[in-house]
Design a protein around this nucleic acid. Sequence first.
DNA 1: GGCCTATCGTA
DNA 2: GTACGATAGGCCA
Length: 943
Amino acid sequence: MADQKRLFLLDAFALIFRGYYAFIKNPRINSKGLDTSAILGFTNSLLDVIKRERPDHLAVCFDRGGSVDRVEAFPAYKANRQETPEAIKLAIPYIETILKAMHIPIIVKNGYEADDIIGTLAKMAEKEGYKTFMVTPDKDFAQLVSENIFMYRPKFGGGYETWGIPEIQEKFGVERPEQVIDFLGMMGDASDNIPGLPGVGEKTAKKFLAQYGSMENLLANTHELKGKMKEKVEASKELGILSKQLATIMLDVPVEFHEENFELSQPDLDAVKEIFTELEFRRLHDNLIKTFSPSEANSAKAETKTTSKTTKKAAPVGQFDLFAVPGSGNVDEEVTVSGYETIKTTDHFYQLANTPMSRKMLLQKMLKQQSVCFDTETTGLKALEVELVGVAFSWEKGKGYYVAFPEDQAETKEILEEFRPFFESMTIEKVGQNLKYDIKVLSNYNMPVKGLLFDTMIAHYLINPDMRHNMDILSETYLNYQPVSIVELIGKKGKNQLSMRQVPLEQQTEYAVEDADITYQLKEHFIKELESGQLTKLFTDVEIPLVSVLSAMEIEGINLDPNFLNELSVDLTTDVDRLEKAIFEQAGEEFNLASPKQLGLVLFDNLKLVDKPKKTKTGQYSTAEDVLSYLAKDHQIIRDILEWRQYNKLKSTYVDALPNEINPKTHRIHTVYAQAVAATGRLSSNNPNLQNIPIRTERGRQVRKAFIPRDENYVLLAADYSQIELRIIAALSKEDTMMQAFKDGVDIHTSTASKVFNVPVEEVTREQRSNAKTVNFGIIYGVSAFGLSNQTDLSRSEAKELIDTYYETYPKLRAYMASQVDFARDHGYVETVLGRRRYLKDINSRNAIVRGAAERNAVNAPIQGSAADIIKLAMINIYNRFEKENFKSKMLLQVHDELVFDAHKDELETIKSIIKEEMENAFIMDVPLDVEIGVGQNWLEAH
DNA sequence: GGCCTATCGTA
DNA sequence: GTACGATAGGCCA
């Protein structure tokens, strides 16, 4: 069997798409701003197949021009495919170049899909005595499987599986693979727009196949069906036949199979190197060299592979004599070849320090270091509620120590105390990934963390704010090392998940020290990257000090009055029930009001309130607020629905949810600020989100009354920047008229209205001011006439005129916006007043929509981000002064342009002036900053 | 239980 | 038009 010649046919587009989407949450962007995800994904698959299988014959098949025959038969065929992403279009020429350099044949035929080409070639090769492996994730290919033709499917999470006849029988519930065509024809395929039989999904299709064996036989025996199903299928016989045709892979493509053309040969390594260098695929290049260099033949991996299988030696074939493996194509038992180093492939010295003596020696060593990475292991995710299970330390690549703690919390405290000299040391730098978490955990044991900090998560956030910053991803990206996954250790989330405490100590040690080890290595890497991006100052002077400030704010929490919310809840329930009843009466039926799907059907199918209802992107009727608002004036039911929506939202998201967030120990609410999430530099708040507490509507605003001072000795103080973003754009653009308005302290929207509508300030109408206000805000987001007319009563042309007049009034503002876009085009990024960068990879996209979005980002990011920079500075300065003066008053919350404090009554006047001074002077520009301070018995009163 | 979509709360 | 997070429904396994 192993002697049989083997042909591998790759379905290029399917693999490219798969590769692209594998990186979708963390796209690979090279230094030129090119999204290389698709290229990397595909090339990885290609090398992976070669490395695992050592095929002697291989080709890559592309689509070109789509399927002429299928579109003729059914114009909608594949019509609802989304447009190919830009990055994929750009990827194709690179992939073709790579394939050419590797001397791998590319098969294309105008007017045929890759499916058809692969199918035809597979059948031809079968006649020539080949075993053919169709490399594709696309299940349509199952119909081609035979004794000599297999599907070779990439699995999620790595590895491949081979589907032969038995697998097809099992997965599709068919006797013969050809029946897969009937199966697909019956159930249809949304992605290819094969309609299928209405009402028939996977389950029913399997049932029909078992019973009737084919589409034709089913359609000939529809009299045996019953009820709705009978009607539907009988009405769709033609559709059934058509669907089957569409699903059929053609086997008569005019291609020829000359085996010598498909032989895999040695690549042109120089040419490959050139293209890989251009793309910045360093690791892939190493991988390629390994893959094609016979001297590596006896590597450990190859040995594991062969010894784990029956030892029947394969006859040497093709280029890869030295590492020939048995050619069954069955890969289930093979070790995973991810391309990453792991704990198994790397020398390491991770030691458990579990005795008083070993801990003492560990401490002695640590105290001699300048910089040490530490990482706490705990019983859960909520830092303020968990118990400490262990702490790992590392300060040298590949080495580290783990201190484990017992369940007894008093003992834990004692052991932790031994390390106080380390945590309190002002001279040893503490390195960590998301140090805020560790600081909070240690605070449960009254153990402060002092001295310089280096947080790798935050470092990377500054280096590339659009990426995600999990340690696992960072490690794979920067160290080519895949850490032990937490899932391996404690299992998947949910039912059987273990606590870290239940993991054997040896494994805890390996896992925890590895994390510390990796984090320490990442630091070395990121120091350089911060420096080259001129981000070191922002990191050291702003983000790192902020870690401690946020930790303190989160630990402090805020007082909540749950009884007040309970009363609110009762009132809301009354109104929700009343409205629900009224709505059902008007609709003439009961349904789930909270389901937009059901609501849409009731309003637009049954009641037919509109001729041509707006649809969402998934094809459902849209019932969003702006859609319903149009109808509100004509229909009582719509007004009731909007009111119901509002109350229901308030109740479920705030009134009923917030009391559950009260910490049982502190009786306060402790939000968690995410310092490395928002791409612009803002913070975000979660668990619970305290940055979106209602204020706009009367009813919603009541929720703020539940946020109250610590006790009767305190009041709540709120300090707001007034128009900070407009002030920033005025200062950055040096638009004199706008700057002057701010210097004069006049109402900016009235001032704008007076200028664009050319009327004296005192004659500006409410409507004019309101429209001017909308444009002022719109400018910050990158207005369009369309957006503006949607937000105001203005028509599209009136909106356009208003925008034009606005730009004439403030010409420098327009010039500034254009200059930001130009800067982004030239440099690939824009930056804030403190040099925080945001990379805009789509700024030169040929797709106008994509490019437009990037251009709006180029304008908005520096403004939103500079405002974020400034309030961060203010927070640090206020915190430091509060610490120095030892105030009882505490900073509690940040809401983008607002800070909220528990203000001790004795300190009220003092801190008012400190807060105002620090906020207004946090960053000096040509426009003054203005801060309004309010004080009250709750958050609403403080405004 | 996990993941996606639609909706809506804030600056 | 920018930036977020939480909820419920609905569908998957």
